[in-house]
Design a protein around this nucleic acid. Structure first.
Lengths: 327, 327
DNA sequence: CTGAAAGCGCTTACAG
DNA sequence: CTGAAAGCGCTTACAG
């Protein structure tokens, strides 16, 4: 482990002061072109790289963007990250990811690590963080939540999709295809789940199908998905709108286990249109959240905050429906 | 954005010197218990948290572990991350993830970001980084590669699984089940792929099946997987050993498209035993790499380096075979 | 048990 | 166009 060269090393080698090196390397117009070049060459020779820690300490800016994600397993989340990364790069920001599974304490700690690092902005892709932790972080650093209906916390921006509309797209599509007994598989009390459920119920009502609304809650503690599905199948349901692609995958899997044909016997619609939708057989019809776009918008909101905006912004993007073989 | 409180703020409020606060907060035994408590209370009130940047700058240690990953889509990679995170936490290290798809330049830049941050150690889960970049990073920071047969670079540790043995497990299993015409689907020139291929060929020879060795290379530029598979099927092959689960998934998908029964007509074995193996129908038999363990060992090697070890260490773990319905 | 001082590697006014 | 000085927020000897 050789110690890395510092500004002082470059200055000594070039026979100039530290400040001149600093100015030159950052392309300050006050430095002569020839001097700048000479210094740059020496810096390259030495393999000099500005110490992010030191620079961040004095500038108060680190050009780092922190992303907190609770699940690396759900492709929907990681696809948002891709959008964030692309947009961040365009703004000269480096993205640091921290992953905290569903452990609230750990997630909060990770949030601390990031704010402690003085990242310039924070993107949170997780519904598991508690409001107080989010609020505390947002007091120090611009923060935007992605995919979670905006928390009741001041000072936080959000980017979401219109979950009620998405649910309506799914139901309308199934009804248009002649399905009338549409069950909804959901889980959890989180805002997005609740909104999709509301959208489902409203759409069913609109189609005069309020009497067959059936909600299968797969939250821990509820009945096992299998049992609930068996019951729904027994009761003649011919379609399922699942809360997300992961749930839809499980529904299809179970239906096939029971010897049902998908979509002939049971049509299935997912939500997210993640990579998982292309991994089911048959391929999954799914409500498409514009994930890359959501990531990009999140970065844009952060940059606006850095530019001085102080009022909260909540962007709601329109989902679309991607129709595949499962319906 | 209120500025965060500093050591000075806490000291002023407590009526003591900065140094005392620093000592007290880190639990230095030289500080009286009552004093320590009083200071701790005030720090908590103020919401004080040590600035990682400043601390890192002076200590030369950041208690940060950097992980470079090229794919967030392959569950095999993210499952290694889980192992790294768990072990890191046990050592009081926070894990920072950077993701660089398959863009060599971007990956190298990310590596720079991390070394620039003075992370204490680096875990690289990617076969895409060039040796010179790795070597440069390793000169500054302990670095361990996971899953890639050790690069020909000094100063880098590695944790891998025995790919040749894994391939042998797969072939032996298929042959024991009565399959004789086993094709191998591979791709890329990377060490792991080559080792699995060697293992496949050796095992086939050992079973006296050298004459039916058939390698399907799905590298870009090679023939499409579909065409190559169709040919193999036409030629009477009754089993496939795929380079990894992702490839196995595609093989099964295509076989089903062609109306083949898996495993009756075509048995399939994957490699990695990632979450994907539980997402195929039928469930995929796969060579299990001990991913959590590999992640944990990587952290252990890093910690040893920090403790002063200077010779390179290359750990090779034994894979096992997880048998499921696809064979 | 406690305080004053130096220094980590940088940037930023401020003089020349 | 260039250099000396202060300071970002911390830790670490070093005196008392």
């Amino acid at each position: 482990m050789t110690p890395r060269p510092t500004l002082r090393d470059v200055a000594a080698r070039a026979g100039v002061s530290k400040s001149l090196v600093s100015l030159a390397l950052r392309g300050d117009p006050g430095v002569g072109e020839r001097t700048r070049e000479r210094i740059q060459v020496i810096a390259d020779e030495l393999g000099y790289r500005s110490n992010v820690l030191a620079r961040g300490l004095v500038q108060g800016r680190t050009h780092l963007l922190g992303v907190v994600i609770s699940s690396l397993e759900n492709p929907y989340h990681t696809e948002i990250v891709a959008g964030v990364e692309e947009a961040a790069e365009a703004h000269g920001l480096s993205v640091l990811l921290v992953h905290g599974s569903r452990d609230r304490g750990r997630l909060a700690q990770h949030l601390d690590t990031l704010t402690g690092l003085n990242v310039d902005g924070l993107v949170v892709i997780s519904s598991w963080l508690e409001d107080e932790h989010l609020a505390a972080a947002a007091r120090r650093t611009p923060l935007v939540m992605v995919g979670r209906s905006h928390a009741p916390v001041q000072g936080i921006d959000s980017v979401t999709n219109d979950d009620e509309l998405g649910a309506a797209l799914a139901v309308d599509h199934l009804v248009a295809a002649g399905r009338t007994r549409v069950a909804h598989v959901t889980g959890g009390r989180r805002p997005a789940a609740l909104a999709r459920r509301r959208g489902y119920e409203a759409a069913m009502s609109r189609h005069g199908l309020a009497d067959v609304v059936r909600v299968v809650d797969r939250s821990p503690g509820g009945p096992a998905l299998q049992d609930a599905l068996d019951e729904a199948i027994h009761d003649g349901y011919d379609a399922v709108f699942a809360r997300n692609d992961v749930a839809a995958f499980d529904v299809i899997d179970h239906a096939l286990d029971r010897g049902l044909r998908v979509p002939a016997d049971l049509a299935v619609v997912g939500y997210d249109d993640s990579a998982l939708a292309r991994r089911t057989r048959p391929r999954l019809t799914s409500v498409n959240q514009p994930r890359e776009r959501m990531g990009a918008r999140a970065v844009a909101l952060l940059v606006e905050r850095l530019g001085g905006r102080t009022d909260d912004q909540h962007e709601v993007l329109r989902p679309t429906l991607t129709v595949r073989a499962s319906t």
